[in-house]
Design a protein around this nucleic acid. Structure first.
Lengths: 167, 167
DNA sequence: ATAAACTTTCAATAATTATTGAAAGTTTAA
DNA sequence: TTAAACTTTCAATAATTATTGAAAGTTTAT
């Protein structure tokens, strides 16, 4: 496998993984491309590499910026805008975990809290609903907390030692 | 919010969360429905509750069984098949994490390993590709390991104490 | 063996989501 | 101020994914 093959394989695999986890393919691929690029890329560069339209590129770059994992780079003397992604995997993971938590998990935790707080009318089905959604609420909250804390450990050694502790 | 409203809210929220994370809505809703049901449900029951077709119900039940989180229940004297889901949230999380890891993460780890192992031809871009995919490989592998280990802790106290340790 | 009761399969269709491309918008240089 | 260089927007279209429903398949009771 040479450079070009490896690049294509990485970018397309990352795109597929994104799709599987509810992330738009183009978005994941743009991020992957920037992640292995040695220099900021322009919209033209991205369109060309991924064979996608200007509109698609523009919209997905904006989304990546909204997520906080891509930033605009102004290159002096250049008219075009250039883009880069966070290069540190730990920081990247931190940002993604934080955003998905905020956008997707927190609202669900809220619903689970509400649902599990309905008045117990004494029927078996109500008791079961309360019991099960309460358990799910606790699990979700704990998992969310944990992921955020783990991913926030900038010092990799804590993570490593935790892993040992758990083995 | 009464029982019926709470049930609808829970089931539909769970369905939306599924969609967001790449899981078919009907599949997530069926699982949610079974999760709060006090007794096994038949295909008819599920179709009726979720207003979905027989075919859809059948296919998604099969998928849930393939995932190992729903099982067929034979009720003596009954001709119909009945279904139940794993009721313990910890066990549920364990199964889902294991399956998603096996189906989706492991193949990506393999690709990252391959891509990060290409021959270093000395060019800057190749060095960057290797460096970045290697970092991603390590992160993915560590995260995957960790999630599986955490989720495998059947004794909740370990999880709880870990959380404290991390705070 | 037959038929009733049930489940599965899968081609057709619907619903959702992603993508295009060109017009409208913005910025910069002269 | 004009126009060239660039980006954004968004209605139209394409691609993907989910769902239906009816025919085919299976199981059980008689």
């Amino acid at each position: 496998m040479n450079y070009e093959e490896a690049k294509i394989k990485f970018v397309s695999t990352w795109g597929s993984l994104g799709t599987l986890w509810g992330i738009n393919k183009a978005m994941a691929q743009i991020q992957a491309l920037l992640f292995i690029s040695t220099k900021p890329l322009s919209m033209e560069d991205i369109m060309e590499e991924l064979k996608i339209s200007r509109g698609n590129t523009s919209m997905n770059l904006r989304q990546l910026m909204d997520w906080g994992i891509v930033t605009k780079e102004i290159i002096p003397g250049e008219r075009k805008e250039y883009f880069t992604t966070e290069k540190d995997v730990q920081e990247l993971a931190r940002t993604i975990a934080k955003e998905r938590s905020r956008r997707e998990i927190q609202p669900v935790i809220k619903v689970l809290k509400d649902v599990s707080s309905i008045k117990d009318d004494g029927t078996e089905k109500t008791k079961e609903l309360i019991k099960q959604t309460k358990a799910l609420h606790e699990l979700t909250e704990t998992a969310d907390d944990m992921i955020n804390k783990l991913v926030n450990q900038r010092q990799n050694w804590i993570t490593k030692s935790l892993l040992k502790l758990l083995t």
